[in-house]
Design a protein around this nucleic acid. Sequence first.
RNA 1: GCGGGGGUACCCAAGCGGUCAACGGGGCAGGACUUAAGAUCCUGUGUGCGUAAGCCUUCGUGGGUUCGAUUCCCAUCCCCCGCACCA
Length: 935
Amino acid sequence: MEISTVSDEEIIKLWDESKIFESEIVHKKPKYFITVPYPYTSGALHIGHARSYTLGDVTARYYRLKGFNVLFPMAFHITGTPILAISKRIAQDDKKMLAMHKEYVSIYEEDENKINEIVESFKNPEALANYYAKVIIADFKRMGYSIDWRRKFNTGEKFYNKFVEWQYKKFATQNLIIKGKHAVYFCPSCNNPVTTDDIKGGDELDIKMTEYYLIKEKIASENAHENCYLIAATLRPETVFGITNLWVNPEKIYVKVNVRNAGIDEMWLVSKKASEKLKKQGFEVNIIDEFKGENLIGKKAMTPLTNKEVEILKANFVDDDVATGVVNSVPGHAPYDYVALRDLGINFAQEPNFRMIDSKIKVEEVVKGIKNQTDEKLEDVTQELYKDEFYNGLMNENCGEFKGMKVAVAKEKVAERLKSLNLLSKIYENGIKDKDGDVIKGTCRCGTELEIRVLEDQWFLNYADDGWKNLAKKILKSIKIDPEIYRTGFVNAIEWLHEWPCTRNRGLGTKFPLDNKWMIESLSDSTIYMAFYTIAHLLRNLTVEELDNKFFDFVFLGKKFDGCEKYKNIRETFLYYYPMDERRTGIAHISNHLTFSLFHHAAIFPENLWPKKISLNEMLISEGKKMSKSLGNVIPLKNACEKFGADTVRLHLCYAADTSSTLDWKEKDVLATKSKIDEFVNFIKSVDGYASYEYRDMDKWLISKFNRHLEEFLNLMDKSEIRGAVQKIFYEFFNDIKWYLRRTEPNKKVPKEISEEWVKVMSIFIPFTCERLWGYIGKGNFVSAEGSLKVDKEAINENAESMENMLIELIDNVRNFVKLIEKHKKPTKVFIYFAEDWKRELFSEIKKGKGIKDVMADEKFKRHSKDVINMMKKTHQQDIKFIPTIEEEGGKIEGAKEFLEKELNLKVEIDVNADYDPKETRKFAMPLKPAIYIE
RNA sequence: GCGGGGGUACCCAAGCGGUCAACGGGGCAGGACUUAAGAUCCUGUGUGCGUAAGCCUUCGUGGGUUCGAUUCCCAUCCCCCGCACCA
């Protein structure tokens, strides 16, 4: 087949057949193992996904071209609830979900019936995952990704489960997994915990739960033997120092309940509704007595830490369905309390502990304009005051040992203190207050309002473990981060990570090996799977039973067992590819996935197998806006490929922005990239057919330029500065080509060697185009399989480049003057003069690093002292690379005389001795910068 | 508030102590080619001045360090992202 004319699709087929992207051990060759996170198979890929993958593929191709044995694998993530949630909603005939997936499927299918049939099949989560995996593979191939597909798998497959189980058993033996309490959203009618995917509007709304601190305030009881507490709920435990009274709603039902706390029975007074919530949130609660709130009014309770008796007052604004229905009144710092007391006509400002936080904004000031406790503005001023106090406020002398502490710090400290005195507990409420003070509560997709339950036996990865943290820090020290600016992100992430709940009640993936009722959470099963890639295809030949702990211990850690010989090649394969040389992904993953990956590598693998480099890129937006379904500006990857061609999409993703800035996908710019590729094709084709011949000067210049750009290109690629690399080898070299063509017209012969090398390098970015061109220029095999790329350093000719540069600048200069002169008369002739020999000698002195004093010692310079000082001021040692003789300069211009005359439309007179110099312009001439006179 | 990143010409965007009036792309204007359009190529594109190698003012704003700052330091204003159990 004539490859020079075939379509992208046919090239993909040829690549597949030739297996050039399948990597096998080659001991003589250096290897390069690069991965990009596997996609989640719940929908079609869009152009935003393609950025990381394309940069990953470009890197893979780059190293392949440099002669590395590259492994670039891919798999699919199906762990977690989203796929299940979609299936369920499709099964329930959810219109929105159906429409969305019909749209996705219609990207790939034309026939309406077929589309419906496929979406119908999505009722089965497995079918959904498989379908999208299939189309993603097609998309990746269409994009020309050089992936070794033999290693693909999905995270629900048995052999992968075995691998993850092995990993978690390892953590268990290292005591890195702990068990504890964890609050979750729970749907009472579905009878299971829910995640974002099950919450109505969960993907758009920010549904969160509110964590209330329960503060136990001792209250007298008829029974002197029991410990009885009024349980006030607050978001601000540090304000206990400012409590002047308590609020209870007289109209609502309250209860006295027996709560068993750490084996001790206590009596709590809370609203009846609160008692039910407490039960659900893991408290052992028995109702002893039930009464109206008014029964509590007038009684006194003791505030903790300060041990002050305060009175319970009535307040109708207290909601018995929020937390406990008992509220601390802190008028000095809570506008609501201030206004409520003012409404009651109670004077409280005399209380010695009225003010307990010093900050700029004062409660008395913010409430000035507030009419009464139902005023809507109260919410605004509360937020304003709280924000100021929290971030800028300091605890004052009323706060005992906490005096002088920042409020933000004191909040934690006071809570800890109360906890240690057994005077603090927590309760969770559905929803969090938004900016307007409205509580947005989570509702299950089934329509039921969610409640909060506290799970007692949730499993956590204990990232707070000091030993583990230190290992993660150590790994970070040794790993390369590109661009380096993101390193602090990792430092912070490692520092802040603590217990991470790593199990879920539901979802696809791997069962938690220590407790089979749990599933491993989706971020937690994807931390060291890069190691799995190296051997995934070999494991297919084994039975699942064989993949036990011994097996993985041997393959990954080298622990031998009887019969391990059989798996020697698997161990060898792993060791050949590991450690991973590079992981490429978006910066959004720094705070979780990537940092988890560091932790897990550190815990499982020996130091010599830790990953070597993480390369990162920013996100992508479209025409200045974030891509989102609601804006309808999501561009499916397949559509982009069809519209612009995969090569254009690839090159544009590489060139349109630096990796560390957001890439704005603008159609206008994409089209410009496309036409640049067309230009490239035309150029390479125009080269065809010329045999090698004696190089002319301009050929040497072009070869020099090419090699210089190539050298810079290699440097930039090694630093993952892909945009800069493209600019050098494509855009800048293109400008050189244009110049070359102008200079050598009409004899448009470009050295064939350059076009070959150029096609090779460009195949990294635009592989389809280059594959065709490779065929066109008569090379066999695939350019994508080429494994050599060398800079011909010998060919880089600094002097030739400088001389050509002189010419370019000369033209510029002449044009400038022509513009000026044209206003007065029509120029016809240009005289060119060259710098006198003494200037050349002076340059050579400067180049040697001589100073003014050294130079002035010489009589021949002293004569021109004024000019010498001037020149030395302007000219720096490092700027002087080459000092030609007058003859060389003259020769260069002479050789280009015809060209100059044509370009400038002037007669050119080369006056080496400046015999005719009416305005004495020769004095302006410098080495490599001839002077000109125009008339 | 904390943490991170950033503010560069009409727009996007590189530069991160001297070669910078500032790479590259887009746009715009003029020219070549063409019956025309398109494509392609060339030229120009901060301002004001100059028939001669320059001068003036400019890289958010205001200071400072330096022989020299778009680049370093300080202050200040503005924008974006993260602050978690969500993939």
